[in-house]
Computed example of a mutant assay.
Amino acid sequence: MFRYLHLEFRGLGTMEQFFYYDLEGNIPTWFSSILLFLCAERAWQVASAARASGDRWHRHWRWLSLIFAYLSLDELVQLHEQVVVPLRESLSLGGVLRFAWVVAAVPLVVVFAIAYLRFLMAQPLWTRVAFIVSGVIYVGAAAGMEMVGALVVTAFGFQSLPYAAVSGVEEGAEMLGVVLFLGALTQARARLQGSTPATTPSVPPWSTRP
């Protein structure tokens, strides 16, 4: 919106650099990165609680934490953008696959879904539903809306209002998916911490009753 209203502030240039979601190193980028890192931190706590309670899936929780830590880093420095041009040129991609990183990302998502299927089915119903809904929203926005954005860019260009609208929907839906997942992780942590067996404090020998 700042781009099309041409709002100028002396000494600051345009507000676009601070708030436009399709740029790097600005407020939306930091916000998304922090959200993803909170998910990583929360999943690590869940993994620790799961291990303490004897939950067999504690390693899955740990790996989930590492995956979200990577996603947080990727959101901050745009690692996936580095493969766009090499993939597009080597595979002669265009149109819906103009942003060629989705070609590598979609198979990885499928592998992740298969690897975590049993883990997902072992979770309580509410956690399972929350994970599925948040995952569909996040992946649908990140990959699905990215492909829609590729078509819009081909038709109207990067500087167009339609592309700005698609980017806004994409980033907003990604944030929504992460927030929902963070809530599900918080519930999972509370559940597992509540099931952690209480440890019996050791009694020093001099305090034993005669």
Rank of each mutant, 00 (worst) to 15 (best):
H58P: 01
E146P: 01
I137L: 08
A184N: 01
S33P: 04
G172V: 04
F37E: 09
H6P: 10
G11W: 05
W61V: 05
F112R: 03
F19G: 10
R10T: 14
G11A: 07
L38D: 03
A105W: 00
F158Q: 11
D74R: 08
A188S: 12
W126D: 14
A143T: 09
S167F: 01
L176N: 06
S167G: 10
L71G: 04
P204T: 11
T186A: 13
A47I: 06
V136P: 12
T200A: 11
V203A: 06
L185F: 04
P205H: 08
L91R: 07
V129I: 14
S33K: 08
S134Q: 08
G194W: 06
A105H: 01
I114A: 14
V111P: 05
L38S: 08
A164S: 06
L161Q: 10
S167I: 02
W44M: 08
L35E: 04
V148T: 09
A50Y: 07
F68K: 02
L180M: 12
T186N: 13
Y116D: 01
L64K: 01
P201Y: 07
R128V: 05
L7I: 15
M121C: 13
S33I: 09
R98G: 04
Q187E: 13
L79M: 11
E41A: 12
E75S: 06
S32L: 14
E16H: 07
L97G: 01
D22M: 04
T199C: 00
A49T: 02
Y21H: 15
P201A: 11
V203R: 15
L76T: 10
R59I: 09
L125T: 14
G172C: 07
P204R: 14
A184E: 00
P205Y: 08
A190G: 12
L23C: 08
G183C: 12
L38W: 01
D74C: 08
Q17S: 11
E41L: 15
G172D: 02
G140K: 03
G140F: 02
V148A: 07
M121Q: 15
M145T: 03
S32T: 11
A165V: 15
A155Y: 13
P210H: 11
E171R: 00
T14N: 09
A52G: 07
T127P: 02
S33N: 06
H6F: 12
L125W: 13
A122D: 13
V46M: 02
R118M: 12
Y4K: 09
E24F: 09
S202D: 15
F9M: 13
Q17E: 11
L73Y: 06
S90V: 04
M15H: 12
Y163A: 00
E170T: 03
V102P: 03
L23F: 10
V133W: 05
R189H: 12
M147Q: 07
I114C: 12
E171A: 05
A115M: 13
S195I: 00
P86E: 02
R3L: 10
E16M: 09
P162A: 11
I34R: 01
Q17I: 02
T196N: 02
V139G: 05
R128I: 08
L66H: 07
S72V: 02
W30V: 15
I132F: 05
Q123E: 14
V46W: 02
G194L: 02
A100Q: 05
V102S: 03
A69N: 01
